[in-house]
């Protein structure tokens, strides 16, 4: 990569390519009821961009989740079911 391209703002998709996951077959986070959820906040604050809108529907793709808990803090168990991936699955930080 040239210096020029290093000094370019990267999109979230490009940042996600830097990470390694062992994705669980079972989804560990699920939107149960989007009514009353702070949707804009979830979309902007989930650091991995797991939340997005498809029309009026809030989508959650658990594959890129780093299990930080932010969306849990911004919701309640009746709206978002939140648990950890099993068997060591999920994000595998290599540095940090």
């Amino acid at each position: 990569m040239s210096q020029q391209s290093r000094l370019k703002q990267l999109k979230l998709e490009e940042l996600l390519q830097r990470d390694v996951w062992d994705v669980d077959e079972d989804r560990h986070i699920e939107v149960l009821n989007q009514e009353g959820l702070p949707i804009k906040a979830l979309i902007i604050l989930c650091p991995m961009g797991c939340y997005s809108m498809a029309g009026d529907k809030l989508l959650m793709s658990y594959e890129g989740c780093v299990e930080c808990g932010t969306c849990r803090v911004l919701s309640s168990p009746d709206k978002i079911r939140w648990s950890y991936p099993r068997s060591g699955r999920g994000i595998q930080y290599r540095y940090t």
Binding site: M1, R6, L10, L15, L16, R18, D19, P47, M48, V66, C68, G69, T70, V73, I91, Y93, R94, Y95, T96
Partner: peptide, 10 residues
């Protein structure tokens, strides 16, 4: 520098 990892935690 290259970005080699990205992530978040509370």
């Amino acid at each position: 520098a290259d970005i080699i990892e990205y992530g978040g935690r509370m």
